[in-house]
Design a protein around this nucleic acid. Structure first.
Ligand SMILES: [Mn+2]
Ligand SMILES: [Mn+2]
Ligand SMILES: [Zn+2]
Ligand SMILES: [Zn+2]
Lengths: 166, 166
DNA sequence: CGACCAGACGCAACATTGTTGCAATAACTT
DNA sequence: AAGTTATTGCAACAATGTTGCGTCTGGTCG
């Protein structure tokens, strides 16, 4: 069975603040989130509002599964959640990334542009941590290739997982 | 449906040789491969020999699916192939990586150490290309984190996919 | 306000990749 | 040649993600 635990508390701990980007942000109001959605030209539905608000509150990128659990009772439909998440990513309101277990993780885009910093990916829990360091410049590409983005990923075990196994 | 096409020919083209690492290597004999397997202390079974030989012949990292197709008739069992591939990776004879479509790709380990160079990952076909550039050094980690590996991945569209859509 | 309708939703069914349990087989050892 | 035990093949399962389609509703306009 796949073990996918997000060390919520740990990620936003001040202990790591010196090297972690994206500090915790105050929760946005429902109206503000709805307005942000409408500005893209699309409809501000309850599903989109709740999910985007959840992402903006989250201290780390979340999986579809984690979001479904977080919504708890009166959860929205599984497929709708997939569509909402993809829509958020396409419309630029969220980032869609793959974690160390090859599962998609989503994070609110407003909080910071993930292309401007380096990431640490825990091979144990799958968590993604935003580090303060900037990624280096890309080397030259072979002829005919086109670049869309650069990822500098450090892999290993996060503090939480290291502590849990010692 | 998932489209997973490896541009075999393209990857080993001399056009790209200036910037691509891992040039094409001559095919190893069955006996040499079997001996390489036995040296790990495990049994040299037909499945392991055929798969490792295929990987050493391949100009690019292959998915489970591609390997199954390549073996064609008298294919080995799906599950056995998964186990052979995982064993090859664990025993150090092959590398196991994730492509842009979040599918595992396997490549023979002897041909070159992938930690010493940068990769280009095509977001269209999922192909992984080894570039000649070396990855930059890792920045400092937060306290308690442990690093196991660094990936510097360029993402975009490969020459084959760019040409196909123009 | 009430009707309208493109866009969003919910449901059911499906696809793909990867894993687990277990009995049967065969690679190596003696 | 027989014995041991790693490896195989099969069937069933699990997790993530997708597609098709009929129903509903958010935002708009009369
Ligand atoms: Mn980030
Ligand atoms: Mn490589
Ligand atoms: Zn972890
Ligand atoms: Zn491509």
């Amino acid at each position: 069975m796949l073990r996918l635990v997000v060390s919520y508390a740990l990620i936003s701990r001040p202990t790591l603040a010196g090297t972690l980007a994206l500090p915790f942000q105050p929760s946005p109001s429902v109206d503000a989130v709805a307005e942000q959605i409408r500005r893209t030209g699309a409809r501000a539905t309850p599903a989109r509002i709740r999910v985007l608000q959840l992402l903006r509150d989250a201290p780390a990128a979340l999986t579809h599964n984690e979001i479904e659990s977080a919504l708890g009772a009166r959860a929205i439909d599984r497929v709708t959640l997939y569509r909402v998440l993809d829509w958020l990513a396409e419309s630029g309101l969220a980032h869609k990334n793959t974690d160390a277990h090859r599962v998609y993780r989503f994070s609110a885009a407003a909080a910071g542009e993930h292309l401007t910093h380096v990431h640490f990916r825990c091979e144990d829990c799958g968590g993604v941590f935003c580090l303060a360091a900037a990624p280096p410049a890309a080397p030259a590409l072979p002829l005919g290739f086109s670049l869309s983005r650069v990822d500098f990923d450090l892999r290993g075990r996060c503090a939480g997982c290291c502590a849990a196994s010692s």
